[in-house]
Design a protein around this nucleic acid. Sequence first.
DNA 1: AACTCGGGGCT
DNA 2: AGCCCAGAGTT
Length: 340
Amino acid sequence: MSEFATQLIAWQRQHGRHDLPWQVQDPYRIWLSEIMLQQTQVSTVIPYYQRFLATFPSLSTLALASEEEVLALWSGLGYYARGRNLHRAAQQILTQHQGEFPQQYDAILALPGIGRSTAAAICALAFHERRAILDGNVKRILARYCGIAGEPNLPSTEAQLWQHAEALLPQQDIATYTQAVMDFGATLCTRNRPQCESCPLAGTCFAKRNQQVAALPTPRRRPALPQRQTFFLLFLHQGEILLQQNPSKGLWGGLWLPPQTDDLEAFLTENRLGTGAALAPLQHTFTHFRLHIQPILFKYHPGALPGTWRPLSSALHSAIPTPLRQLLLRLPKEVTMPTA
DNA sequence: AACTCGGGGCT
DNA sequence: AGCCCAGAGTT
């Protein structure tokens, strides 16, 4: 067995995390956690995970729910395709696997929202099958330990990382090892200021031996964020707000939003609307652009536009994106005191 | 191989 | 303000 795996497994038993809510022998709960944890940190996921599991305690309750209910519980977590795929996968398991979570890697990989790394994580954690994962933690650990330069997302770099991930697997204790690399990356071999002085691998780590810890993994260079602008048109009437559902594909897919336009003048003319009151603007930053949102408040226009009227309290529990939630929460103050 | 898809934590 | 995070799907 490799020194790498042996040391990590020993480290995990002594210093790893053992009280995370999804550390159970239940493929449904492990699967749910893996999906929520894609590109999302543990501390962010925990409250969503608890609420989700309280509402959908089993795979069948999830499969029998509506997509609307699923997205409402996903509201604020982001990457909403994860929630839609999770729901679709639950339905597929019900119809194609008799409601029992599949145990074969190929069958797991075939489910929507599950790629190579997530399928391997489920196999290793839930079924103790010898599979390599390659998430952000493992990429960082291997880039340092093996001395792999190049941006981790480039196909050539990723291929090397996968090769090392496979080669360093232990012959046994695969579940403990898989949890070990994730905990080790999250708490010791962190991106900034890793605790090399406490690291059991410091003696054999390429980056540590060659003073490359700060330089590895190679940071990704990203272009400057493009800026975009939109207007949220808020129609309020007797405590209700007019919302429209986004198409299921694309940004904020399947979520509820107020009528939107990037050309206010044209929109008001086309729909024969008068002028509204500008509320305080807000910014929302995505991975690939920054959105400037200008809310405009209209007091009473029933039937002016298509959509669904929802009580404000109900809207707050619906499938809405974070900036709309922020806007609705501060609406009571804004309505009595518009800024312009 | 490049692009799309959220939101938050940390520095 | 910039970086990254238990990545996958689409083109």
